[in-house]
Design a protein around this nucleic acid. Structure first.
Lengths: 186, 186
DNA sequence: ACAATTTCTACTTGCCCGATAGGATTTCAA
DNA sequence: TTGAAATCCTATCGGGCAAGTAGAAATTGT
């Protein structure tokens, strides 16, 4: 009943992307994502081409490029993402709603395994097809603030701030950084 | 979120074994199981050595040999069988109760993916660790009788009956066959 | 004792997943 | 206009799973 590494990494990255976006950094680079979650960079790269093909992220090439979310967060359901990356949620194909396929068993209507696995599929779907990225990001941020933990991309924000310290003070990005560090300290 | 073929075949075979046992045929051969469910014979063979090692079946070698259930049916929980064959139920190792392992994420307490997958794991476990083979076999047989479908090993029973027709009429196995064919016709 | 049947054990093939590597292309900035 | 930095594209490798093949070991019926 495993979620593949592809799927796991994809969800991790999307959640981070959502958190960062909520904190005012809508675009992130793969190297950042990989560093925060300790994922293999090149592998994540491949996964993101899949996510882009599915419309879940948009890319900007070249220097200062990166990835941003391709849909509104409340439109990104976890079940759909997993289906894109890993295929159907159902443990066996004969109980899948989105990719049904006959099993080897001769009589589906009286197959004990089938009715058991149908229950399992529905239980999984009830969770993964209901929750959206928006809710998970919201809950995660709330938990972090409650426990006074600095959110994932606070460190990056501090680095940028230090970097900008050696530049002219009236940088147009200062408000952005301000929002990020405020949220990080809270 | 897939169940492996090994796991699927193992469960199919156990259910058949339970049904046959309930109908008075406690021991079945791998060739029979494979024929009914259309499974690769030699692959099933390997799976049964695993099931035997786990204590879920017992084997009898030689002519008229085969496999029978190794525990009472209400002691065989599907979750345990799947764990033996496929490993933990949990989609990711950091939410597994039986085989916990740290994830790559830096802070488990505030990991959005983790709490989501913990929900999924619990939903799966709530089904697979509660239902036992006895219940599934019972429900399946009830469904079959209600819909007037002849249970899985009725054909075999008829063959035996035809075979016994050319033998002395007062065969001691006649009551057994009677039970099987009665259940099949009802 | 022998032959048939069946479980056991080992090896092999093909395929997909996870991961790595290198280069091509695009973009921004100096 | 050059170079750095990032996404893109393609090829490859190792390992485990599904499935098939071959044969040995054990037990029962005749």
């Amino acid at each position: 009943m495993k979620l593949s590494k592809r799927g796991e990494y994809a969800l991790r990255a999307l959640i981070d992307l959502g958190i960062a976006s909520e904190l005012g950094r809508p675009i992130l680079q793969i190297s950042e994502l990989a560093a925060k979650e300790k994922l293999p960079v090149k592998f994540l790269e491949q996964i993101f081409t899949q996510l882009k093909a599915g419309g879940y992220v948009e890319s900007k090439r070249g220097k200062l490029g990166g990835y941003s979310l391709g849909k509104k967060m409340n439109r990104i359901k976890f079940g759909a993402v997993i289906r894109l990356i890993d295929g159907p949620l159902a443990p066996i194909p004969c109980v899948s709603q989105t990719a049904y396929a006959r099993c080897t068993c001769p009589d589906e209507a009286h197959c004990g395994l089938r009715m058991l696995m149908l229950d399992v599929r529905n239980a999984i779907s009830k969770i993964l097809d209901r929750y959206s990225l928006a809710e998970i990001v919201d809950i995660t941020l709330r938990k972090m603030r409650r426990d006074k933990v600095s959110p994932a991309f606070a460190a990056r924000a501090l680095n940028l701030q230090a970097l900008l310290g050696s530049l002219p003070a009236a940088s147009p990005q200062k408000t952005l950084i301000g929002r990020v560090s405020n949220a990080a300290q809270r």
